[in-house]
């Protein structure tokens, strides 16, 4: 843990170096040397921030101390580009963008892997023995209680729309959400929501009128709610929100009850993996961590399912399957983004 931290180099120089080497955009980079340091190395690329993912890597190294783990944070679109277009050499890709992960596998850029852990996964949490889900993370609304003073917390999208409509002065410029043109996860949440709830487009209209602030990432949105810049962040990753909310208790997390958008964080072994066997070990480690019943390690990311939950997809995760390709289609994407931009960016 200590030496691992010592070696986490977040310096701009390193990021610049990594950026120069790879054509895709790298956000963070961390290296967790094993003992001995010249042992086998696993190269991971993921959307999760290093700070969120580091405990999982350290826990993995407790089981396999000889393996050096190299972790690169990038946006889901950059991960997709790195694997599909540049054939970058990574042993594992861990992403919140289920659609892009599925497309990587569908287009033949993922390896198959089966183990005891993968076969124990419910069918809705894996696809083709190539894409495996290890967390289930709902989209939530993060609210600043301070800015909401005197208002009733919304319980559904309809209530939310009414609330925003009724108090334009309070919420103008004070609501944040994903810029779906930039964020893969934001796009996934938005398309799934548009498909499932008729309130989505009305909400988009209302948000547009209120001069909604657009963000790339959940973390920044939550920061801005915490700092008071925003009254509310819509469609934030619940897992990120939990980490903020616990210590300060100043933020309120609201799960809308009419429709729950649940993202499954998935892992796949790219076709370009150098060491698929050790990558498999890490997959097993992630799946064990996703199984709340038997994982004892530090819990940063939420488990795939609560122990109390049955093996069904009752809680409504986004389905892993070729349907996810639909909104990745260029025509569909253009049409959706046009409609969204028209709603959200009003003159």
């Amino acid at each position: 843990m200590r030496h691992a931290f010592a070696s986490i180099l977040l310096s701009a120089a390193l990021i610049a170096l990594a950026g120069a080497m790879a054509a895709f955009e790298v956000e963070e980079h961390g290296r967790f040397p094993g003992t001995p340091a010249d042992g086998p190395e696993l190269r991971l690329i993921g959307t999760a921030e290093l700070r969120v993912f580091a405990p999982l890597i350290e826990d993995f190294q407790r089981r396999h101390p000889e393996i050096t783990v190299d972790y690169t944070t990038a946006s889901s679109a950059e991960i997709f580009r790195a694997l599909m277009e540049e054939q970058a050499r990574f042993d594992l890709a861990i992403s919140s963008a289920m659609d892009l992960q599925l497309k990587i596998a569908n287009d033949g850029f993922a390896r198959s892997y089966t183990s005891r852990e993968t076969t124990r996964l419910p069918s809705w949490a894996r696809w083709r023995d190539q894409v495996f889900a290890f967390t289930s993370e709902p989209a939530v609304v993060v609210i600043s209680p301070e800015r909401f003073e005197g208002l009733e917390l919304p319980r559904s999208r309809h209530q939310l729309v009414s609330l925003l409509r009724d108090h334009p002065e309070r919420f103008r410029g004070a609501v944040g959400t994903y810029d779906v043109r930039e964020s893969g996860l934001g796009y996934l949440f938005a398309t799934q929501e548009a498909r499932s709830s008729d309130a989505f487009w009305r909400l988009a209209e209302v948000l547009g009128r209120l001069d909604v602030q657009l963000y790339c990432c959940s973390g920044q949105m939550i920061d801005d709610v915490a700092s008071g810049r925003l009254a509310m962040a819509y469609n934030v990753l619940g897992s990120y929100a939990d980490q903020y909310v616990d210590p300060r208790s100043e933020l309120e997390i609201v799960t809308l009850e009419d429709y729950r958008n649940v993202m499954l964080r998935t892992v796949l072994i790219p076709a370009t993996a150098q060491d698929p066997a050790r990558a498999g070990l890490f997959v097993d480690h992630l799946l064990r961590s996703g199984n709340a019943a038997n994982f004892e390690g530090p819990r940063i990311l939420p488990p795939l399912r609560d122990p109390a939950m049955r093996d069904t997809s009752d809680f409504g995760p986004i389905r892993l399957g070729p349907a996810l390709l639909v909104y990745l289609d260029e025509l569909n994407r253009t049409a959706f983004l046009d409609a969204w931009s028209n709603s959200v960016e009003q003159p």
């Binding site: 596998a105 569908n106 287009d107 033949g108 696809w127 083709r128 498909r195 389905r319 399957g321 070729p322 349907a323 996810l324 390709l325 639909v326 289609d329 025509l331 569909n332």
Partner: peptide, 16 residues
């Protein structure tokens, strides 16, 4: 492309 066009394919198997 309608969502159903691909989701129906995913419903019966896990083919690419």
């Amino acid at each position: 492309i309608p969502y159903a066009a691909f989701s129906m394919l995913g419903a019966i198997n896990e083919e690419r």
